[in-house]
Amino acid sequence: MSLHIYLIKSGTRKNEVDFVTSFFQNFKEFKIQTVKKILPDDVQLISFDEKNTYFENLANNLYDSEKSAKIEFDFVFRENPGLLTLNNPFDGNIFGTIEVEIFSNKTENNKVNTFFDAICQNLIKKEELDVFFAIHKPLLSRAYVDLIEEGEENPLDCLYEYDSKGIQFFIKLLKVLEILAEENTELNELYEKVRGNDKNYLSSKLWKDERIRNYAFALAERNNVVALEGSFKLYADNPEELKAFYESMIKQILEPIFDDVPLIDDKIKKVSSKIKN
């Protein structure tokens, strides 16, 4: 339930460091405590002064750090400890270029255990996250907060999501159809019809149709899910509402489109039966 940010692969270490310092400048309640550079056999504490040149000095100290180094920023968010990690490329592929985690303070007064808790309690405003990601769109590939560790794989487990490519909105719908079809025979028939299509092509067609796109956003609103244009942003308070939203998109958009499309198996049998021995 942490924030995973994937930056574009061609970004330099300087780009990454600038992104991180910009994050701390934008979200002032994340107060840096210590900064460490971590290499396989070495840990270095990076010093920074807390006066006017705080971020400038910090960034200058980190610009020429090796890409193979991980940089850890320990921070305090209100009454909770947290950690922002700027990963090396290997860890970045698995966990995101940047991970932001908030941890329990293990006291009786603890109210926040995860990054997602902080969004739910409006301590971090999702609109501010949206604006921050929009500003950094040229560097950003995607960002999400997952409900469980496997959230990246299953759109039903991602309650906050920002993607720089709009067509991902409908690619996620197709992924949800695939997941739900595993347990629902009715949906399985629809999935069999849809799966033969190129996902990117179909999603792109759906995204580019303004009426369909707006209709999908209206369906989101009916299910208490925030879906917004620009790039693509999605936010839900709970997984049930998110699932209901995806189910309504399947029913209202995908089913009517594929209603008359014959099953490929039926077509093959039809052709096959006409072939003379």
Binding site: Q33, D74, V76, E79, N80, P81, G82, L83, F103, S104, N105, K106, T107, E108
Partner: peptide, 16 residues
């Protein structure tokens, strides 16, 4: 939750 009292662990500042 006992570490703060016993060892002076700053629970709200350091991950535990």
């Amino acid at each position: 939750y006992e570490w703060e009292k016993k060892f002076g662990y700053p629970l709200g500042k350091i991950r535990a």
